[in-house]
């Protein structure tokens, strides 16, 4: 039985905006599934529908084997949901936050108390358990939030950008908890801007753009679809080189064979080419003859970043997203 099975899911908002345009996909039981896409692609809308927080317009979706509308109450008992912003009650202590979640999941007595103690230990909040969560650091709040989605031992965990806005250390910690949870058998459904972690942890992923799924598969499948290596050329003056230098370099490059694409970038010039490693001597020789000084040259296999760029025409830059979210927390559109 798949953990999530979505068929032709459509969501049209009251104002006529079609946020999700008939998507279909499947997440297997126990999978670590990445759900990627640029801002406004419809990721959060999809997560809200799958977690019973928003009504779909048409199509069907089963979560943990139950229809999300017909069996919404059953689905709610089987899933844990972490939304974009950290949501805890800061007037309550860490322990009280977890107890409340447990109570609302119909857990009681010793069983609940033990489960809460266990979770507090897992997320390293044992010492701060009885302090008001208002006094927690950002990372601690996020860990408490994560723990609060786990009290009732959900089978599937939905996470909407769980690490956005965290410092690198807390981020790494959250990813390592998620990895551990997945190893225990919990299915993870995650949206995130951090492609390196997706590459490392997600078994499969889907890329959503303008409400449609534009690619899905395992990270290595998607990367091999790019079919080309990435060669980055750096020039002097902090690698960028001036305009005329770049133009001249591009001219030289276009005379070489085997190059699929030449792109201007912040790093200098980026070339996509099959078997890029073999091309390096040619490039160096050609530049030498033309009298262009190279400051650096690097070859890498395609990354998920390239995959994302290919399918959406955009790059993900987590740092910038962090900044814009921090300043616009309350101006955010409710979607």
């Amino acid at each position: 039985m798949p953990a999530v099975q979505v068929e032709n899911l459509v969501k049209t908002y009251g104002d006529g905006t079609q946020a999700v345009k008939g998507i279909s996909f499947k997440v297997d039981d126990g999978e670590f599934f990445g759900f990627l896409g640029p801002n406004g692609a419809g990721k959060s809308t999809t997560i809200k529908i799958l977690t019973t927080l928003l009504r779909k317009t048409s199509g069907s979706a089963d979560v943990a084997g139950h229809d999300i509308e017909h069996d919404a109450q059953i689905v709610r008992k089987l899933i844990g949901v972490q939304m974009q912003d950290t949501v805890i009650d800061e007037d309550l202590t860490g322990r009280e936050n977890l107890m409340l979640q447990g109570h609302l999941q119909q857990m009681h007595g010793e069983e609940l108390k033990e489960r809460v103690n266990e979770l507090l230990k897992i997320v390293d909040l044992g010492d701060a358990a009885d302090k008001r969560s208002a006094y927690y650091s950002g990372g601690m709040k996020k860990r408490l939030d994560l723990a609060s989605t786990l009290v009732h031992r959900p089978k599937i965990l939905f996470l909407d950008e769980p690490t956005t806005g965290l410092d690198p250390q807390s981020r790494a910690q959250v990813w390592s908890y998620l990895k551990g949870l997945n190893q225990e058998g919990i299915t993870i459904f995650i949206t995130t801007q951090y492609l390196e972690e997706v590459d490392r942890l997600c078994r499969r992923l889907a890329i959503l753009d303008h409400g449609e799924i534009v690619a899905q598969g395992t990270p290595s499948e998607l990367k091999s679809e790019i079919g080309a290596d990435r060669i980055t050329l750096g020039f002097e003056n902090g690698n960028r080189g001036d305009g005329t230098l770049k133009d001249k370099a591009k001219q030289v490059l276009s005379s070489l064979g085997g190059i699929t694409e030449i792109v201007d970038s912040d790093e200098g010039i980026v070339i996509y080419a099959k078997n890029g490693g073999f091309l390096v001597p040619d490039i160096v020789r050609a530049f030498d003859t033309a009298g262009i000084k190279l400051a650096s040259i690097g070859v890498s296999s395609p990354t998920l970043d390239d995959v994302f760029l290919k399918h959406t025409g955009r790059r993900i830059r987590p740092e910038e997203i962090d900044k814009s979210r921090a300043s616009g927390m309350f101006g955010r559109r409710r979607r």
């Binding site: 927080l53 709610r76 939304m83 912003d85 949501v87 009650d89 119909q106």
Partner: peptide, 14 residues
């Protein structure tokens, strides 16, 4: 509503 706590409760069977 603003903090998202209502949403969090709505995601439970409460």
């Amino acid at each position: 509503i603003k903090s998202g706590f209502l949403t969090k409760i709505l995601a439970t069977p409460a």
